[in-house]
Every structure is written in structure tokens, then in C-alpha cells.
């Protein structure tokens, strides 16, 4: 075991760590935002919207994330340059960077998986509670914000925490589209030093620590929300 390379590469490892964190937080937040309507319309309709949402979830959950990532980066991304004048537009620096494509791919993936969880979560809230809320004169939107969504999230909170951890561990896939997140940095170190195990062991340790922190944070929130009632 030889760890003498760590000081030389510590800056790069730290920047990789931040990139991993950014990718995780951005895609988990936006993915969850998308998951709420995806889960909701499958309970409320209209039928055609529900069909689209279900189709989306099936497609995302039925295809490997790596393929989605490459389809978006090398596939969709290669169509943009053919649009006239786009290389001169202010959008081009963003369109040619890899990070926005990774965030898009991971967001869609989180939305697909979490959308399915939220569908079940919304369906699991007792009808009586929603009827009671409506009888109190709440508007449909108020029912959603005050009763339906909080109760749904409460029921699936541990599952959402698990989904968050799974997303963290999917982020190394971004290294395949030239994003130097944590794993990408370890690959760089391996290529420079020809040391295989130490860089991998180090980033594996960092992923374990990140997971532990995520678990603790979610547990803290879990303990603060009232236990779900048995319907």
C-alpha cells in the first residue's frame, strides 16, 4: 500500500467531491419536484396524462442509467451543433459542457424511480382524510399541500432516503462523459500513478462516509415527523 500520492492529488479529490455533491443534490431535488406531479396524475387523472406518466416511469426504470446518460450526452447533445447559429449563441457554452447533460439524465432517472414511489404513496393516504379535508372547505390545492403530500411523504420517507443513497452511488457513471467527479478523479490518479487499489479504496471510503451522513440526516428528519398512523 502506498498513499504518498494523496497530498499531490488532494485538491483534485476535493473538487471531485464537490462535483459529486452538486450532481447529487441538483438531480435529487429536481427529480423529486418532477416526481410529485408524476405520482399525482397517476392517482387523479386525466387518463391520458396518467398514461404518459406511467410510460415515462416504465421507460426510465426499464433502461440502464448508463444508456440514458449516453443517449442524452452523445445522442441529443450531438444534434445541437447542427442548428444554425447555435455556436454563436449565449447558450453554446452550456450546451457544449457535460455537466448539464449529466444533471438532466440523473434528474430524469430520479423522477422515474421516485415518481413510482410517490404514486404508491399518494394512493396509500386514507381516502377519509382527504374527504374530511374537502368537507372542511379546503380547495384541491390546499388539500394537496396540507394533507395529501405531507401524509404521502411521511409514509415513504425511509424509501426516499434509500433512493437518495442509490442516486449517490450512481453518480460515478458521470465519469464516462468526461465529468471529473470523485470517481473520475480516482481514475485520473490511477492513470497517472498506475496504482489501482489505493485510489479506489480511498474513494470507496469517501462514498461510505457520504452515505453515512445522508443516513444520519434523513434519520434526524424521520424522528422529527410524527409516525405514520395505521390506516
Amino acid at each position: 500500500m502506498d498513499w504518498s500520492w494523496i497530498p499531490e492529488y488532494s485538491d483534485r479529490l476535493i473538487s471531485g467531491f464537490w462535483l459529486t455533491l452538486q450532481l447529487l443534490l441538483m438531480s435529487a431535488t429536481m427529480g423529486f419536484m418532477l416526481a410529485i406531479p408524476i405520482g399525482l396524475v397517476q392517482n387523479t387523472g386525466p387518463k391520458w396524462l396518467s398514461m404518459i406518466a406511467r410510460g415515462f416511469c416504465t421507460t426510465i426504470r426499464g433502461t440502464p442509467l448508463l444508456i440514458q446518460l449516453w443517449l442524452i450526452y452523445y445522442g441529443v447533445g450531438s444534434l445541437f451543433p447542427d442548428i444554425d447559429g447555435i455556436r454563436e449563441s449565449f447558450l453554446w457554452p452550456y450546451l457544449r459542457a457535460a455537466f448539464p447533460y449529466a444533471v438532466t439524465a440523473f434528474t430524469l432517472s430520479v423522477a422515474g424511480y421516485t415518481g413510482e414511489i410517490m404514486r404508491g404513496a399518494f394512493a396509500g393516504v386514507p381516502k377519509g382524510e382527504l374527504e374530511a379535508a374537502r368537507a372542511m372547505g379546503m380547495s384541491p390545492f390546499k388539500v394537496l399541500v396540507r394533507i395529501w403530500l405531507p401524509r404521502a411523504v411521511q409514509n415513504v420517507f425511509p424509501t426516499l432516503a434509500g433512493e437518495f443513497v442509490l442516486t449517490l452511488k450512481a453518480t460515478p457513471l458521470a465519469a464516462t462523459i468526461t465529468i471529473y467527479e470523485l470517481f473520475g478523479r480516482s481514475t485520473e490518479i490511477r492513470q497517472d500513478t498506475f496504482r489501482v487499489y489505493e485510489p479506489l479504496l480511498l474513494v470507496a471510503g469517501i462514498y461510505i462516509l457520504m452515505t453515512a451522513v445522508i443516513v444520519v440526516i434523513f434519520r434526524w428528519f424521520e424522528n422529527r415527523i410524527p409516525k405514520p398512523s395505521i390506516a
Binding site: 452523445y74 450531438s78 455556436r87 457544449r96 459542457a97 464516462t176 468526461t178 485520473e188 492513470q191
Partner: peptide, 18 residues
């Protein structure tokens, strides 16, 4: 300087203007 896993991939990104 962007590092790719394969020869085909950096060519694809050259063609895509990245």
C-alpha cells in the same frame, strides 16, 4: 484538456463541437 475513455468518444465530441 478533457480526458475520454475511448478514441471514438473524443472524436464524437469533436464532431459535436464540444
Amino acid at each position: 484538456v478533457k480526458s475520454y475513455q475511448g478514441f471514438d468518444e473524443h472524436n464524437a465530441d469533436l464532431a459535436a463541437g464540444r
